[in-house]
Amino acid sequence: MNANLSPLDRLRIERLVWSLDQQLYDLPRASRISTRREVRTNLTDAAREVGVSQAIRNVGSSRELAEGYLTARFGDGPRHSWLAAGVFLMTAMLLTTSFLTEIVLAYARGVSDADPHATGTFSYDGLRYFQTQVTYTFTDGSETHVGGSFGIATWVLLLVGTIFVGRLWRAIPAFRQR
């Protein structure tokens, strides 16, 4: 084959390299960068010898290649997933915040429904351990409130759930099976 690769050939190699990189996010950054460079160099050398199409066919899919790198690094079996942990945490935070906010607003609506021109200070203890106390100040029916944030149990459940869903204990080298 000729020694020079066309821009289209280089783009085909880059597409495979970046597709592989997207599947290696469980690896540390430096390791991902070195893997990218290694695969790019090997593919370029192989493309010069046998052609780009054959070199890419010989490598296989980026998914299989990524699985090989991850298995070499972490071994067979289930691995930790930062993506799963992040998705769980963001979703759980959104749903928990929504639920606890509705509780705070429901109490305020209850006071307003009982007395549309309420004036004074009211307090609600919140869901014990899950939510802090809420203090409502009513002035002629208009309301402001302070409090109602996450309690210690909410933070603990979010942390434990994130670790459990993402299997983050597997990210610690001491807990990984060799």
Rank of each mutant, 00 (worst) to 15 (best):
A55H: 09
T97V: 06
F88M: 00
N58V: 00
P78K: 11
A84K: 01
E102A: 13
S19T: 04
T97W: 09
V104P: 03
T41H: 14
A108R: 10
R79P: 01
S31L: 13
S53G: 14
G51C: 04
F74S: 06
L24P: 04
E102F: 12
T96Q: 05
R32Q: 14
A108E: 15
A30S: 14
L43Y: 00
R48D: 09
S61V: 08
R48Q: 15
T101H: 13
A55R: 07
L27K: 04
F88Q: 02
V87Y: 04
G77H: 04
V87N: 04
A108T: 03
V87G: 03
G110Q: 13
A66L: 11
Q23F: 07
W82G: 05
T35N: 13
R37E: 15
I33Y: 09
L70P: 06
R63I: 11
L94N: 05
N42P: 01
S61W: 08
R36M: 10
R109W: 07
A72V: 00
E38H: 07
R36E: 07
E67I: 01
Y25Q: 12
T35K: 09
A84M: 06
T35H: 09
P28C: 04
S19A: 03
V59H: 11
T101D: 14
G86H: 04
L100C: 03
G60Y: 09
D21R: 07
Y69R: 11
M90P: 00
W18V: 03
A85F: 00
L95E: 02
S98G: 14
I33H: 11
V39N: 01
G75T: 01
G110M: 08
H80F: 09
R32T: 02
G75P: 03
E67W: 02
A72Q: 12
L89K: 01
R29N: 12
E67A: 14
R48V: 13
M93E: 05
H80A: 13
E64A: 13
V39W: 02
L83M: 08
T71M: 08
I103H: 13
A55G: 10
R73S: 12
M93V: 08
E49C: 00
D45S: 15
S34Q: 15
S53P: 00
H80T: 05
W18D: 07
N58T: 09
E49H: 08
L27N: 06
F88C: 03
A47I: 05
A84R: 03
A66Y: 11
A108Y: 03
V104N: 06
G110P: 06
R48H: 05
T71R: 14
W18Y: 13
M90G: 10
R36N: 13
R57Q: 12
I56Q: 10
